[in-house]
Design a protein around this nucleic acid. Structure first.
Lengths: 211, 211
DNA sequence: TAGATTGTTAATCGATTAACAATC
DNA sequence: TAGATTGTTAATCGATTAACAATC
């Protein structure tokens, strides 16, 4: 709706870090911060910080800096954290369990309202209060509850199948933990978490150390 | 030791994807691939792929392309996946549990040989066969077993304390899941997994969809 | 050999940094 | 007002893409 020209993904991926530090400052009761101070905290240059923020508007004030509370609120809006999202998890293994039970997402407005598994009949462990449903109910559940986000913590072999169900059911965003590149229509937002890629990167630099 | 001039982090982070597709090709019994075909698979341009690989050597052959098995092996070496690493997990919550029990890391040469918790006395759930030790034993355990990698799945409040123990004990790499920026000496390799950053990024694009 | 595809140099594009006038 | 710090333009740097000679 705004004329706002496409902001680059590199900028977007820095926003959560700004948001995190602003949350801390807010908690500490600090109500003013300059790009230079924010630079010390985040490790980004002051210049870059000002450039980044100015993609979304002039939140600062010359000679003063930025108001912590205001900037925090604005970044929250930009990231969509002022909204409530409903999410489901498909794949009730250890990782699905961890994601479904991590309280921090709920606090940020992401409410996980269902967990689904193919192995409903004999799950290997207790899901800690969260009722685990059979995968066959996934589609109806999403439609009935207007679920926004589908989380995939299945094995890589089942991930695309689950994604297809998500897409068919009208989900808008997929948070994928399976190590596959999912095929999704372009109006579906896909965000991948690549745990082994991250570990391999660590390994690369360890090797450089001569280990 | 090699004269190899510092390869940029953006290149490094693409390597695991190449490696993943080459593993797949290998499994399918395909033994030859061109940069153009690899481009179709990965979504990177053929030109970029050739540039990336040539940071590490000329693995291809004019008129032919790349030998899948050879390139796979070379990338494995570059990423350090031909080595064995010992790792420990600090923080035996849901996420620590998931990481410690995920078999895939073991297969890639990362052996998690210990799990540590502050709440050893009354862990809220069973750790599935993995013995959970008290945090007080962490330092000696690392020294006695020559542990390479320390994984942090504690709350953010305890993460730096754990990192300090890791550093003191001689660990070389830290894989951090806690949402804090850890302070570590520069000879320690630090790799962060930012789950909420990833979720916030998803949220940003969902919002753009008008949700 | 003719065709294909690399390795590499040069051109382009985008992102970061520097600089400074505007202004609180 | 004087000092500080933004917003923004210009300069630099780095990464991606294009092009093509080398060569299998």
């Amino acid at each position: 709706m705004t004329k706002e020209t496409q902001v680059s993904i590199t900028v977007i991926r820095r926003l959560p870090k700004y948001y995190r530090y602003l949350s801390e400052l807010l908690q500490k009761g600090i109500n003013r911060i300059s790009s230079q101070e924010l630079s010390k905290l985040t490790g980004f240059t002051a210049s870059q910080i000002r450039q980044d923020l100015n993609n979304f508007g002039g939140f600062g004030q010359q000679g003063y800096g930025y108001n912590v509370e205001e900037l925090h609120k604005e970044l929250g809006k930009i990231l969509g954290l002022n909204k409530e999202y409903k999410a489901v998890v498909a794949g009730a293994g250890n990782l699905g369990n961890a994601i479904a039970n991590y309280g921090g997402f709920k606090d940020a407005g992401f409410d996980i309202i269902g967990v689904f598994s193919r192995y409903y009949k004999d799950l290997p462990f207790d899901m800690e209060g969260l009722e685990v449903r059979d995968m066959s109910e996934l589609e109806d559940f999403i439609k009935d509850n207007n679920v926004d986000i589908g989380i995939i913590t299945t094995s890589k072999d089942n991930a695309q199948k689950v994604a297809d169900i998500y897409i068919k059911s009208g989900i808008k965003g997929i948070w994928n933990f399976a190590p596959v590149d999912l095929v999704v229509p372009e109006d579906i937002v896909l965000e991948n978490v690549r745990l082994s890629d991250s570990l391999y990167t660590l390994s690369y630099f360890l090797k450089g150390l001569g280990k």
